[in-house]
Design a protein around this nucleic acid. Structure first.
Lengths: 205, 205, 205, 205
DNA sequence: AATGAATGAGTATTCATTCAT
DNA sequence: CATGAATGAATACTCATTCAT
């Protein structure tokens, strides 16, 4: 009883928070972070300008929140999906696929993640702490695990391979974002994994 | 006689243009494109605010000019260095090395190229025409050539491979840029080429 | 109840709008339109700089609004005062008197109307649509009516007489300057001298 | 010999001065005084920007010079043409005709004189000293003379009639606006209406 | 909690003027 | 005398943020 009495406003609050994040993604994607106006985000979220500041500390925090929110859920889903999988390389494959699927499903989100979060050094540093760091840790762990189990070549440092995975995926995403006729992002999945695997996989004599 | 008479002002002008570009790179790198102020660029270049507009049309054009200027010289150097080389894969290796060396030499420049030029769709389109397009063409040509000569697997499309090269290199550069203790960027060269080559090279049975 | 609840903000808003217009009249009069600064208008109106733009689109629109606002009220007053009057000439006399009284009451306003609204051809065109056009129509109608009733000489066209009354042609050519098909200015010479001479020349018996 | 030796540069100088004035008239007319750029005046006059300042003290002085130059020649011509005429009213008629002819011949000049010289109170004061004052004196003298000889009604003050003729009072108060001791504008109402009515009212036999 | 009117700091750009050549 | 590259003061307008209601 108490719960439901409190659940209502909380749900309401959470729903409004999500609406604002959604509006932020759309506006940041459409106009770019710096050109997007808080007033437009508010309008798109159907709230008053001032309300944004009851949910987020300011514009910058709103962008960080988009990033964190998406990665939060990405990590959760990834952990669930790779739970029963044995091969680290296969796990890696799954994580990359999930990532591409998320981007493919929500082009505006992809744009914000790929482009708009790259602005200032300070900003990137803010990002690296928080969920993004966790995500990188996950990838690094998978690669390290793969190396320990002999599935991935040791010549490649885990950090470097992580960067390559993110980078290749990122640039593919960027091309896809900027292309006039985007097509399906997930079609990059196979060749991307193929390409990277080829470099990482231990080649059995 | 005529030369020296005309050379002075031209040299003077060119020298000032370079000073402004240099200042722009530094300021855009330090504060980010949007946060950088034209007044600071002017001060860093030791010219009056108004002088910037005698050399560049505006802030946006200044950023584009940085990009174009760097790529102009990158392309020229690349063409010279790969002139006598036979193997396309080797040529690719050289181009990537040159690129990394340029970024490694000038961290501020690297930052501007990797981060600050990624802002808006419109901006990217501006960039793609001009020298950047030429650069991509060069890479694509090398990959296609490699495929014709059987050095590079045909399964990988030239466009996709180009993206991967740029992306992996980009993300490596980005990590390096954002790392607290950067180390030497060129140490990425060997593993990067190794990684990519492994994915691209025709594996002889 | 409802009224008073809504009346407050509306009144408040209207009061602020008037305060800004008043400040604009004073500043435009004191320094001239181009030399007047929006910041000074804001200060004189006791509002923040940005507030000006919540009430008017920009500096130019502020000037047009001064003009329109004054003419709006001039037309209303004129219509009331000439309502019961029979003679068109008498009506004309009243309108001119009202106009002069308004100018006489508010010297700053007079200055803005007489001088500062005369800047560019484009600006005059903006002005001619809107309330100014209505005002001219009123004058033209009165003169035409006077001519029909034989109170005003037919030799003078309604348009020309209108211009003479409100002085557009007083100095010999403002209207001519702004007209789309100027024709020959000297053709105004005869009727203008006729008109003025008649008033100056001693009427013999 | 000496004369011709010195005449050349002097003529040359005078010719350049005239070219600049001409360019100023055209540019001020085309874009308005405030929007016209000195650089454009220079270009239109085929001289360097800096050269303008060898002939005129600055932008404002350039505008005043246009005014003064035109009036100088207007006064000279007027004096010549009215030399042998007996009737002051006829003289007045001639002066007005000359004035209108000048404006009619050069529309750009007319625009500058009618519109662009009306900007600030300070500016008008600058103008009133100099040749413009002389011009007004001439008109006043003619009217006074006409009144003495019984050609012009005495009810109209010389000053007021002068203003009416050159239109300063045409719209109801420009002169009043710029006068140092304005008095009451409404006192102009009766004589103004009298003046204009006389021209418009049907004179009953 | 929500609103949205008001705030005012912040900045790219222009252009009259100068002065070294 | 003439040039025109360089100067730098000056300002309209935007928009993130606040706070009285």
């Amino acid at each position: 009883m108490l719960d439901s009495a409190e659940a209502q406003p909380t749900d309401h609050r959470e729903e409004k928070r999500r609406r604002i994040l959604r509006a932020a993604i759309d506006e940041f994607s459409r106009r770019g972070y710096f050109s997007a106006r808080m007033a437009d985000v508010a309008k798109a979220a159907s709230v008053a300008d001032g309300t944004l500041y009851l949910y987020f500390e300011g514009k910058e925090h709103l962008l960080i929140s988009v990033f964190d929110d998406v990665l939060s859920r990405a990590i959760d889903r990834a952990r669930v999906e790779i739970a029963g999988v044995g091969s680290p390389l296969e796990k890696l494959r799954i994580v990359v696929r999930l990532h591409l699927e998320t981007l493919a499903t929500d082009r505006a989100l992809a744009h914000v993640l790929q482009i708009e979060t790259r602005h200032s050094r300070r900003f990137m540093n803010l990002l690296t702490r928080g969920r993004f760091g966790e995500y990188l840790d996950l990838l690094r762990a998978l690669i390290a695990e793969g190396q320990e189990r002999g599935e991935i070549r040791r010549g490649v440092s885990a950090g470097f391979a992580t960067d390559s995975v993110c980078g290749a995926r990122g640039e593919g995403g960027r091309s896809w974002l900027l292309a006039d006729e985007p097509g399906d992002l997930t079609r990059f999945h196979a060749p991307l994994m193929d390409l990277l695997s080829a470099g990482m996989v231990v080649r059995r004599a």
